[in-house]
Design a protein around this nucleic acid. Structure first.
Length: 493
RNA sequence: GGCGCAUUCGUCUAGUGGCCUAGGACGUCGGCCUCUCACGCCGGUAACACGGGUUCGACUCCCGUAUGCGCUACCA
């Protein structure tokens, strides 16, 4: 812990790009966990100094993502766009002390010089000429009188900056690598490097936990802290999240927004758990961590230096684990909107038929990876099969005596009064014995008739939940289908 | 290009000089369970980037090379 901060205060500071990126979410989780672990505060700050790219909707999307993940923040949300006067105050301070200076060079002019340098294979550094630092007072006053726009540059001191990152250890950077970077743009907005330092300082941030793409920027920030006579916080850079091709995770890798994972049927607990394990490890062999366990186990020491590839297969597995742990009631709550949207059920159906639906979900649970699979995987419980699986027909309905077998099943089931798993199974088994057939020989054709598919939960469970009437009906419908489409069935060899 | 950082199974990782014949998880492969699909269980496959040091002894420490990523903007 650093000297000078008695309270732990961390923040998540996204720029509003329209959605919460999984990388950002992971950073937010680490911050949140650290705050909860240490009894500190977790603050939220919106970095909306790029007016072109920022808007209220974009902010909403990020807030929604955080809420979905259950990452609540303390205190009011800070918007950088509302703090312009504060930045101005500090800019003036640096201007006055000569640690920064106004730059009247136009963007175009700078770009031209940068291009020229590139052509000559030189590095462009504004500080090599410091054109505007050399201007006379008269010149500057004249520029200002004619209303010429200016940016403010930080006057980079000579030497080197050495600091200790909590994850990466000692980092040393020679100021030769740096430039008189701009801290206030000509539109009056501060740049990221300036705003971040002012805000973290004003907000009393004790630990900056952020992506390691900022590791190289940190010397600039430290220089700014020093110029302002402020105490720098502890820096904790966390490795980036990569796509399967080891490139920085981006849209072309598929889903990168947490909202997309919500849509795809992942649970927030899964996403939190999974993301926590990307770039951090508790040191033991566990994979599944409840939120409380995560808080208990989390430590900055467990953060890795190596960037991690986002492995969606493991995410899926983990989500399956979480779904299995859900109560039937909870699963129904979660899945209800999807069932309704798919047109399988109405709100009223669900209320009326709740007991049965809960039993159906219980059967589905160990088979689920994502909530979005539910409507598709259980549709036959609520409507008759739309079609029969072709491969299934070829395999199970081709025998010449299929119709007869189905007919026998129908007759036998018709006599069953105890239409439960326990009541049905012996009936089918006895029929098999009488026919000298393995149970599978009847079960597969039957499953196809009842569900239209070659796979389902245990057939007796399915029958019990379908109910006698529906079972008899569907067997009859299958027989009729086979009779009407003998060619089709037989031609499919 | 310059600078910074990283480098253990395909992937996430454990490992902080001898406990490593390198452990776990996902995936994959094989098997069991079984009416199918899952679940579950059992087992297999698979890694210390490379080259030099240091040391009695290196996955662990140092140097170099390679590769990857990041920064190098009036984006954040």
């Amino acid at each position: 812990m650093s000297i000078g901060f008695e309270k732990i205060r961390v923040r998540f500071a996204p720029s509003p790009t329209g959605f919460l990126h999984v990388g950002g979410a992971r950073t937010a989780i680490f911050n949140w966990l650290f705050a909860h672990k240490t009894g500190g505060k977790f603050l939220l700050r919106i970095e909306d100094t790029d007016v072109q790219r920022s808007g209220l909707d974009e902010v909403d999307a990020i807030i929604q993502g955080l809420q979905w993940l259950g990452l609540d923040w303390d205190e009011e949300i800070i918007y950088q766009s509302q703090r312009l006067q504060i930045y101005r105050k500090y800019i003036d301070e640096l201007l006055l002390s000569g640690k920064a200076y106004k730059c009247f060079c136009s963007k175009d002019e700078i770009e031209r010089q940068r291009q020229k340098a590139a052509d000559e294979k030189r590095d462009f550094r504004y500080r090599l000429n410091r054109t505007c630092l050399k201007r006379s007072n008269e010149e500057i006053v004249a520029f200002e009188r004619e209303g010429r726009l200016f940016a403010v540059r930080f006057k980079l001191p000579e030497g080197e900056t050495v600091f200790t990152d909590h994850v990466y250890g000692e980092i040393k950077v020679d100021h030769q690598q740096l430039d008189d970077f701009i801290i206030l743009r000509s539109d009056g907005y501060p740049t990221y490097h300036f705003a971040v330092v002012i805000d973290d300082s004003e907000m009393g941030i004790s630990h900056i936990i952020r992506g390691d793409d900022h590791l190289s920027n940190t010397p600039k920030h430290i220089l700014l802290y020093e110029a302002l006579g402020k105490q720098p916080p502890v820096f904790v850079h966390v490795p980036l999240i990569l796509g399967p091709d080891k490139q920085r995770l981006s849209k072309r890798h598929g889903a990168t927004a947490v909202g997309e994972y919500e849509k795809a049927g992942y649970l927030p607990e899964t996403v939190c758990n999974f993301l926590s394990l990307l770039g951090w490890s508790s040191g033991d062999d566990r994979e599944i961590f409840s939120r409380e366990e995560l808080i208990r186990e989390f430590s900055l020491e467990g953060i890795s230096k190596k960037s991690a590839v986002f492995d969606e297969q493991k995410l899926e597995w983990m989500n399956g684990q979480y779904i299995m742990a859900l109560s039937d009631e909870r699963l129904l709550e979660l899945v209800q909107p999807r069932l309704i949207a798919a047109g399988l059920l109405t709100q009223a159906d669900i209320e009326k038929d709740k007991e049965r639906i809960l039993k159906i979900l219980a059967l589905l649970k160990p088979r689920l990876k994502r909530l979005s699979e539910v409507p598709e995987i259980c549709s036959y419980f609520f409507e008759k099969p739309q079609a029969y699986d072709e491969k299934g027909m070829r395999k199970h309905w081709r025998a010449a005596d299929v119709e007869e077998k189905l007919e026998r099943l129908r007759t036998a089931f018709g006599k069953v009064t105890d239409f439960t798993t326990a009541g049905l199974e012996p009936v089918l088994r006895e029929l098999c014995e009488g026919l000298d057939l393995s149970a599978a020989k009847l079960i597969h054709p039957l499953r196809l008739a009842l569900t239209g598919r070659t796979f389902s939960p245990g057939i007796f469970e399915v029958m019990a939940l379908l109910g006698k009437e529906v079972v008899l009906e569907r067997i009859a419908a299958a027989i009729e289908f086979i009779q009407k489409n003998p060619v089709e069935v037989n031609a499919l060899t």
